[in-house]
Amino acid sequence: MDTKRVTLFSGHYGSGKTNVALNYAIYLKEKGEDVEIYDMDIVNPYFRTLDGKDMLDQHNIPLVVSDYANSNVDVPAMNSGAYRMIHDKSKLAVVDVGGDDRGALALGRFETALKEEGNYDMLLVINKYRFETQTAQDTIEIMNEIEAACGIPFTGIVNDSNLGRETTTKTVLASLDFANEVSKQTGLPIKFTCVERGLYEDLKDKINNLVPIDVIHYGVWC
């Protein structure tokens, strides 16, 4: 896909934004771009971009994240470095926005700057198997709430439909109609569909713009 200077990933919490954002940042870096990733989640106490620090370090991608992420401090904080996202236009920015309208609220701080620059993609990450977004209608309801909270309209869709470790090729294929329906009703293009790397070979000829992704592994809880 064509790359805008700022790519924002937003959507229902738990739809897979963090993994998608991590992989997208790595993809850009591997293309030779100068990219930083921003964790703008002000809601989740754990399970966040910081958990993918090893993956990011391997690729030398700086992570801008609240000092309090994954700590015991329960405050909705953003790192002051977040302003680099709009001030340093020499770098590409990948932004992991918090889930739902609550999580996206903080992004509103950058609404004016992002619109003035006019070089961003705001991507709606969708998952047909995620509770509360199983239909196009429910997905669009949450999409509208997010847009109202942060003031930034979506420009495209990422189909990340998955059932965690129980995802199969069938799971992914069965999500295509849903994604198309969201696209049809919103008028937004499906920028790409994500699938865990192990399933990529079996699906690459069956789905347009299919992208293999690596998923943060929480082995300890299996």
């Binding site: 738990g14 106490p45 754990y46 399970f47 509770f131 059932l163 965690g164 809880w221």
Partner: peptide, 11 residues
């Protein structure tokens, strides 16, 4: 506990 409350699994 917080882990089971926060983690996602197929149900």
């Amino acid at each position: 506990d917080g882990t089971i409350g926060q983690m996602m699994e197929p149900v």
